[in-house]
Design a protein around this nucleic acid. Structure first.
Length: 352
DNA sequence: AAAGCGGGGTA
DNA sequence: TACCCAGCTTT
């Protein structure tokens, strides 16, 4: 009973409808400079990495900042990792920035890839990004499969549980081989501005006459929500040595916030309390523990980190906070001291 | 195949 | 609060 729309779909008419809408209503975005199907590869590449799991309005801000700091692939390849992470600060998923820099070093040596397969071989470039860059910059007929495409096709065909392979197969069939780059941009623009997750604007949709979910009357229920793992609590202690402007910072290793700097910290283990973890941390640093400044909690998609922030004293080198790439969590921890200093200052002012 | 990885917007 | 965002890598 499902299925048949796929067979019955008038693909040429659907292409005409969507590309006509795109030519009239498509978004004007800074990485869309140049001829259709022949965009500047570097600009498209940076945009596609930035936009992975990141909404366009946010990506726009970082795009300008990043291209100003690293105008071409050679500038990016030559930059220290810390500079690249600083430009990425606040954008999340920091492995993207580290992989991007590594990939730029490869491209600077071997040249810009000239095919889907060549792009796919670069670190940080998966099937989506390789399809996007090769269609937009090289004119290659590769269909992208992202969250927008998944939602649009789920509704178009009335499939509530679209698998990755299911989406890719339909996207491959629909892709207009005469305008692959424009087609990919059109589906994504439709998903971002019309065929939105919660309240789609079907009255403005060029695909409404073709859409199974629209015909069924409840398009907003497609696709079914993804099941997500529960958020885990991660308690930890951190020490602030120095002040809010110059502090002892450590480079975080591992996957969580890896590559960023942050206040020295230790996890609070199952069988211990915060003071015990503080003592272990101070022993490692050869630091003298001080009073509790407060707690900060930061929720990410899959982790809720609660940091107990203490003062400490130690003869360790401090660095300027403004030049370091920090997570939101560490910025909040530093604000504990900033707030405290300001309130002390306010009291001093009142006393005079 | 599933988990892990940021941070913020939206309803 | 729940869900999502121009996904990729590792397990």
């Amino acid at each position: 009973m499902t299925a048949e729309p796929f067979a019955e779909l008038d693909v040429p008419a659907l292409r005409t409808a969507l590309l006509g809408w795109f030519d009239a209503c498509g978004r004007d975005l800074p990485w869309r400079r140049g001829l259709e199907g022949a965009r500047e590869p570097y600009r498209v590449w940076i945009a596609e990495i930035l936009l992975q799991q990141t909404q366009v309005v946010r990506g726009l801000v970082y795009y300008d900042r990043f291209l100003t700091a690293f105008p071409d692939v050679h500038a990016l390849a030559a930059a220290p990792e810390a500079d690249v992470l600083k430009a990425w600060e606040g954008c999340g998923y920091y492995a993207r920035a580290r992989n991007l820099r590594r990939a730029a070093q490869l491209v600077a040596q071997t040249g810009v890839p000239d095919s889907y397969a060549g792009w796919l071989a670069l670190p940080g470039v998966g099937p989506y990004t390789a399809a996007a860059v090769s269609s937009l910059a090289l004119g290659e007929a590769r269909a992208v499969n992202d969250g927008n495409v998944r939602r649009v096709l789920s509704r178009l065909y009335g499939e509530r549980q679209p698998t990755d392979a299911w989406v890719q197969a339909r996207a491959d069939v629909l892709l207009d081989p005469r305008r692959p780059g424009a087609w990919n941009e059109a589906v994504m623009d439709l998903g971002a501005t019309v065929c939105t997750p919660r309240s789609p604007r079907c009255g403005a949709c060029p695909l409404a006459p073709f859409c199974a979910a629209y015909a069924g009357g409840q398009p907003e229920t497609y696709p079914a929500p993804k099941v997500r793992p529960a958020v885990q609590n991660v308690p930890a202690v951190a020490v602030l040595i120095g002040d809010a402007h110059d502090a002892v910072l450590e480079r975080r290793t591992g996957s969580l916030l890896g590559g960023l700097l942050g206040l020295p910290s230790e996890p609070i283990r199952q069988d211990e309390d915060a003071p015990a973890a503080l003592n272990r941390l101070c022993a490692r640093l050869e630091a003298r523990p001080g009073p509790l400044l407060g707690q900060v909690t930061h929720t990410m998609t899959h982790r809720r980190v609660t940091l107990h922030v203490y003062r400490a004293e130690a003869a360790l080198p401090r660095q300027p906070v403004a030049q370091a790439a920090l997570s939101r969590l560490d910025h909040r921890a530093l604000e504990l001291l900033r707030d405290r200093q300001e309130s002390l200052f306010a009291q001093d002012s009142l006393a005079e």
